[in-house]
Design a binder for these strands. Structure first.
Lengths: 276, 276
DNA sequence: TTCATTTGGTAGCAATTTACTACTTTTATC
DNA sequence: GATAAAAGTAGTAAATTGCTACCAAATGAA
């Protein structure tokens, strides 16, 4: 294989030694992370943001992240940045989307691979204190995307609209940000990633076991249901929820206080798929 | 806002003029496209591949694609490359995944944003003749990923296995390529993208209207069902399929020959969602 | 033209899932 | 120990899915 020659008569080794990657103007690539969690009372979905200390978007909050080094994958970069920012390892992390609009960073061409991470509400204190990372309450309904940090007195809000766009033969429906309502805003185009992350989270909650990354080792059914309702933004029927989810769960013989109801309830742990 | 000074006392304009993007070693970024279609007899799912004329992977087939220029988004790059390769415009194209393993290209660091495109079986001749682009039959079952071009006498086949990996608290199940079976192979890590594309296609077929990008303006129910069955890899029940899909369709008063059954059948066109 | 065969299209029913109400048991509080 | 609220269970109507059967329309061969 190494002996095969190309149109200019070069073998692979010859070709590679002559190859000049500098010919093309290259963008910078960063990995940013949407780290979701919940507050300990299970009242809000939370997102970790970091205050920017530098231009552009100085003093705006942004997703944690950083440059993908030349010898690591974007996934490894995301894990590394998360470790540096929060000290967390071994967390659920999946690739979300890649943002590549040439205008998205005024400094230079930056392409960002966004990841979505989930951590249990019991660990959501990590990285908060001593650093500039802060947890914001996130909510998305039909009309608004809202991020709030009560402690800092900051609310960031975008109005939403349903957009219809044609792609190929089909017209697609999509919820997009319309305009910034609040005085504060997110840095860069990070509101796009937050929207995409919330949509992905909602979507995958319904057909995967994603949710168990948000709870502790032991949890109660009412609390688990609360989390589903919080993220999906709708009430679920207790009976149906319990029937369906219980096949993924292992009941323990202990009872623990449920967070949302404040009464004793059977403690469960995640069992995983029964049939594989 | 422009007057705010950072830690070094610089305003935004001062900061940006001093900013040196060259500090970081940057990867090249390409956009590659998985263009799916069907053969005119609706017997196979098809994927467009291009024979590489150069090292590395010379003579191997690869996904069409190319460098993302410095003033275009990855999506625009994908559209441009597709136009250059096949002459096609206005086709369905969605971002699939970003591949960033540092070892994936022996020449240099290349990060690839993969897109998935769909075109109707009536247009799948485009780009085939006169160019080095060729349509391959694709199939994926429990055990193998197979790409064939009978005309060229080429078969590329990978064995598959179910992998279990822990991420966060949960163990996930995933179908991955195990090893190359055939003599020929795909270039780079393009088999990963093909697998991911097929999974995405299957998945979205069940809850979106993706499939209508694969059919002509007018089509019959048996043919549409055939396409679903082909991609999903399972039989569907005629009655249920018709009941469910017909609310997205507009029946015409003409009948056309169905491709799979070769008898006259009502011609339908896509209507889109009834309630919006 | 007729007739057997194949395909398009529809009916219907059992099993499962979803939407929803109601009730019993357990737990915390006064 | 009474009361209120939450945990947990029962059950039922409506919708969806899995599956079989049938009739009508179209094709092709006699």
């Amino acid at each position: 294989m190494r002996r095969i020659r190309n149109a200019k008569g070069l073998t692979e080794t010859e070709f590679l030694s002559q190859y000049d990657p500098g010919r093309y103007e290259r963008p910078s690539v960063t990995a940013d992370i949407l780290l979701f969690s919940l507050d300990p009372q299970l009242n809000h979905l939370k997102l970790l943001l970091i205050k920017r200390e530098n231009h552009p978007f100085i003093d705006c909050f942004a997703l944690p992240g950083g440059f993908v080094e030349i010898n690591e994958s974007a996934y490894e970069a995301a894990k590394r940045e998360l470790l540096e920012e929060t000290g967390l390892t071994d967390i659920y992390l999946e690739q979300l989307y890649t943002y590549s609009n040439p205008e998205r960073d005024p400094r230079m061409r930056v392409i960002t691979v966004a990841y979505m991470g989930l951590i249990p509400y019991t660990e959501a204190q990590a990285g908060d204190d001593a650093s500039d990372a802060k947890w914001f309450d996130v909510s998305m309904d039909q009309r608004f995307l809202t991020l709030t940090n009560e402690e800092l007195g900051i609310t960031i809000q975008y109005s939403l609209k349903t957009e219809y766009f044609r792609c190929g033969r089909i017209t697609y429906e999509n919820i997009v940000a319309e305009e910034l309502i609040s005085e504060d805003s997110l840095a860069f185009d990070h509101h796009l990633a937050v929207l995409d992350g919330l949509k992905r989270l909602r979507n995958k909650l319904e057909y995967t076991d994603l949710a168990f990354n948000l709870v502790d080792e032991l949890f109660t059914l009412p609390d688990l249901q609360r989390i589903y309702e919080l993220i999906l933004g709708k009430k679920l029927y207790k009976k149906n929820f319990n029937d369906k989810i219980s096949e993924k769960l292992q009941a323990t013989d202990t009872k623990i206080k449920s967070i949302c109801g404040e009464k004793l309830a059977t403690a469960y742990q995640y069992k995983g798929r029964t049939k594989q």
